[in-house]
């Protein structure tokens, strides 16, 4: 307990804001800046990036000298299954078609919870797929292909 108090959350938040600012600023430097009278595409973003770095720096400095709440648990399993679900849907909705893409998407997402057992997950995915297909594809006539060209039928 010899270390001086500091708020780790704000420390990371400050670094995060600064890093984001630097990233946007670096990207904005590749754009034409113009003058403040005739602004180029890079002018406004560069000003904002600089502002973000400054804000991040102040957050960082203020993090020292006080105790903060800890970060708490992190939803690793949640991230591992929730985030890929929409990505999978985006990658496959044209190729596989609406029905199989949605089925697998729901199945992936359902794995994010430890409480979900395999059989209920399967049943849920089937139910969601059937209902969504009836509503969106047949009911509303959205222009999705139900089964895409990657499937041989």
């Amino acid at each position: 307990m010899s270390t001086p108090p500091r708020d780790n959350t704000d420390l990371i938040a400050g670094l995060f804001l600064m890093a984001t600012g630097v990233f946007f600023g670096w990207q904005a430097l590749g754009l034409e800046l113009g003058t403040s009278l005739r602004m180029g595409p890079g002018y406004f973003p560069l000003v904002l990036s600089a502002l973000l770095v400054v804000i991040g720096l102040v957050v960082l400095i203020k993090a020292f000298g006080r105790e903060g709440e800890p970060l708490g648990q992190i939803a690793w399993r949640g991230m591992m299954f929730i985030l890929p679900a929409p990505v999978f849907f985006g990658l496959t909705v044209r190729g596989l078609g609406f029905v199989p893409a949605l089925f697998v998407t729901t199945l992936i997402a359902s794995q994010a919870s430890v409480r979900m057992r395999p059989l209920p997950a399967l049943a849920l995915s089937v139910a969601v797929t059937i209902l969504a297909t009836l509503v969106f594809s047949y009911g509303l006539g959205l222009p999705f292909r139900r089964f895409g060209p990657w499937l041989p039928f």
Binding site: P86, L102, A109, M116, L124, V128
Partner: peptide, 10 residues
């Protein structure tokens, strides 16, 4: 939440 994810995607 799996239902939410499916509906969001659509």
């Amino acid at each position: 939440f799996p239902i939410i994810m499916a509906m969001c995607s659509i």
